[in-house]
Computed example of a mutant assay.
Amino acid sequence: MFKKMLMVGIATCSVLTFSFPTQSSAHANTHTVQKGESIYKISMKYGVPAKQLQAMNNKSNVEIYPGEQLQLPVVPSESEKDLLDRLVEAEAKGESYAGKVAVATVVLNRVESDRFPDSIYDVIHDGYQFSPVLNGTIHQPAGNESKRAVQEALAYQGYDRDSLFFYNPDKAQSSYLSSQEVTTVIGNHEFLR
């Protein structure tokens, strides 16, 4: 009887442990270089292109040194990717494909920035940052174009880490955002740093 109860308890714990989606990125956002490692070996370990790893770390060549900290691209869990897909759909509905990619890029740039939380989930749910979180439209499914835009933004990480904000100045007023440097304008959105 005890053995049967123990097995049921272990099975229940296993189900609870693996049933809930994770809300943090799939791996840490940094890697400490070990002796004998190369950009290529590190890129293979994390499943990211070597050129992207170089871009993330502003490296014009492949020289790295033991003890050096390398920034890694954000690799989202499935639940984080779905959340980002839905945010892009809600925030950039009616905007161009480039605008959707730029919205996703802002979220990824924030994950990499010291000024914001360290996961996609936490960036998206950080206070009053994104109106779809506040008005509930983030719960609506994402369309194929938004999903493709998120994929492109994930592949593009490291090549544009400037934009940390965006807004539509025709719909929202912000003295803080209007005082930031504009990096680009796409459709109705201004992107800023």
Rank of each mutant, 00 (worst) to 15 (best):
N168Q: 13
K93D: 05
P132Q: 14
P76R: 03
V106I: 05
V103K: 12
K81E: 13
S77Y: 02
A55D: 06
Q52T: 07
Q173M: 13
L72C: 02
V74N: 00
D160F: 09
A172S: 14
L154S: 08
V107F: 04
P132S: 07
L84G: 04
M56T: 00
A102V: 11
E89T: 15
I120C: 00
G158H: 04
E145F: 05
V150R: 13
H125T: 14
S79M: 00
Q71T: 11
Y167L: 07
Y156C: 04
L164W: 09
S96H: 15
Q140K: 15
Q129P: 00
F116E: 01
A50C: 02
D162E: 15
R86F: 11
S60T: 12
N109F: 09
Q54V: 01
N109R: 07
A98K: 15
L70M: 04
I138C: 09
D114F: 08
A149P: 13
F130G: 03
D114L: 02
R148D: 10
A104S: 10
K171W: 11
Q173A: 10
I124Y: 10
V103R: 09
V101I: 13
V75M: 04
Q54N: 06
N61W: 05
P169C: 07
G94Y: 08
K81N: 06
D114K: 14
R110P: 01
S96G: 10
S113C: 05
